[in-house]
Amino acid sequence: MKIVAADIGGTNTKICMCDELGNIEQFKEYATESNKGGPHVIQRLLDKIGEYDDFDVIAISTAGQVNSEEGYIVFANENIPMYTGMKIRDIVANQFNKPVKVENDVNSAALGETYFGAAQSFNDFLCLTFGTGIGGAIVINRQLYKGANGVAAEFGHIFTHSLSETMDGGRKSFYETYASTTALVKMATEIDPACVNGKVIFEKLSHGDKELERILHSWVDEVSAGLASCIHIFNPAAIIVGGGVMEQDHLVQLVEARTKELIMPSFSNVKILKASLGNKAGVLGAASLYL
């Protein structure tokens, strides 16, 4: 089976031709131009799919809450304006007259890791990605758990800090407010304005910046507190952590060590592992929808 698989992110979109065994050909990456809105994003996708010849089906991974049964966006934040309600499956299927499947990006990444990556040996695991916010996926018996409305695993919106009337109706108490990469960058720039992204932060850390090291450990505490709660609720065999900052092996080791200090001893066999598929996790996970 020849699959055109795409992964729509807030910044970049990945697209390729592949098969159901995960063999990738003609991999491309282009700017999503998400600030121009959902209709523009999908039109660009249609144009890019049109550059491929002789394929059987289409698989799409995308940011936002997705109704995968009907292939539309239930909710998307301001990163992609006018995206909520977009009937992606119908739009793409009508253009190419091919079967189309659509799934949330973190769910797709979890499926990619299930079949082709770090989670191949686990039946029950969680997947969390740390970036602008925090995305999540729950895999039970090697199947996605989506909840009653199909939008389960909004781990970024669990509450890890006490509520306050002065804190935006409670939203600033969310896990991702304190443990996303955005949060780490905000903490770091308060002591060094040059720390505009994770790459700069870890470059400075490699040169022994003690103040940044203190910031990092404070952030790791926030990450680990949320993971500990997830572990106590789900008792997973593993948690797969992804996102650019989690490419750092040393960071994943710090998170695992701190998390295990926070959890009950009876949960201590859980593994915390780095996602292994990098920027191809989404397209591979989308393709796996046809397994």
Rank of each mutant, 00 (worst) to 15 (best):
Lys2His: 03
Glu256Pro: 11
Arg171Asn: 07
His232Cys: 07
Arg44Ile: 00
Glu51Lys: 03
Asn279Arg: 00
Asn107Glu: 01
Phe174Gly: 04
Tyr30Ile: 12
Thr181Tyr: 05
Thr182Trp: 05
Lys186Thr: 15
Ile24Tyr: 04
Glu190Asp: 15
Val255Gly: 12
Gln43Trp: 00
Asp209Leu: 01
Gly242Asn: 13
Thr181Arg: 04
Ser164Pro: 04
Ala5Cys: 10
Val270Leu: 11
Met82Thr: 10
Gln253Ile: 15
Thr129Trp: 05
Gly198Ser: 14
Ile272Pro: 05
Val220His: 05
Thr132Arg: 02
Val283Phe: 03
Gly226Val: 06
Cys127Met: 15
Glu165Pro: 03
Lys274Arg: 09
Met167Leu: 10
His250Leu: 13
Cys18His: 07
Gly133Ile: 09
His40Pro: 00
Ile231Leu: 04
Lys2Asp: 13
Met187His: 14
Lys87Pro: 01
Leu45Glu: 07
Leu184Arg: 15
Ile138Ala: 06
Glu103Arg: 02
Lys14Arg: 08
Ser229Pro: 00
Glu247Asn: 14
Ile140Arg: 11
Pro236Glu: 07
Val151Gln: 08
Val255Met: 14
Ser121Lys: 15
Asp168Tyr: 08
Leu128Cys: 08
Glu70Met: 10
Cys195Thr: 12
Pro39Gly: 09
Gly136Cys: 07
Phe155Arg: 05
Glu165Leu: 00
Gly208Val: 06
Asp192Phe: 02
Arg214Met: 04
Lys210Gly: 01
Asn12Leu: 03
Gly156His: 03
Ser34Lys: 09
Lys210Ala: 13
Asn104Trp: 07
Arg89Ser: 09
Asn77Gly: 14
Pro193Lys: 11
Leu45Asp: 01
Ile134Val: 14
Ala286Val: 08
Val220Glu: 08
His232Tyr: 05
Asp56Met: 07
Ile201Tyr: 02
Gly135Leu: 05
His161Glu: 07
Ile15His: 02
Tyr52Leu: 03
Val106Tyr: 02
Asn94Val: 01
Thr182Glu: 06
Thr259Gln: 14
Gln248His: 13
Met82Leu: 14
Ala109Ile: 10
Thr32Asn: 13
Gln120Tyr: 10
Gly38Pro: 06
Ala152Trp: 06
Glu222Lys: 14
Ala148Gly: 08
Leu273Pro: 02
Asp209Thr: 12
Val4Asn: 03
Lys146Asn: 13
Val220Cys: 01
Tyr83Lys: 06
Val200Gln: 10
Tyr145Thr: 15
Pro193Tyr: 09
Gln95Met: 10
Val92Ala: 03
Thr132Ala: 06
Met86Pro: 05
Leu21Thr: 12
Glu33Asn: 15
Tyr175Cys: 07
Gly112Arg: 01
Pro265Asn: 12
Ala148Asp: 12
Ile134Thr: 08
Ile88Cys: 04
Leu291His: 11
Val4Gly: 06
Gly242Cys: 13
Val100Arg: 01
Glu154Gly: 03
Val283Asp: 04
Gly150Pro: 04
Thr129Met: 03
Tyr178Met: 02
Ala59Ile: 01
Gly22Trp: 12
Asp124Arg: 08
Leu289Asn: 08
Lys28Arg: 15
Met86Ile: 15
Gln248Arg: 11
Leu216Ser: 05
Ile272Leu: 09
Ser206Pro: 12
Tyr72His: 15
Ile8Trp: 05
Gly278Ala: 08
Ala31Met: 14
Ile191Val: 13
Gly22Ile: 10
Gln26Met: 11
Phe130Pro: 02
Lys98Ser: 02
Cys16Ala: 12
Lys186Gly: 05
Lys172Thr: 11
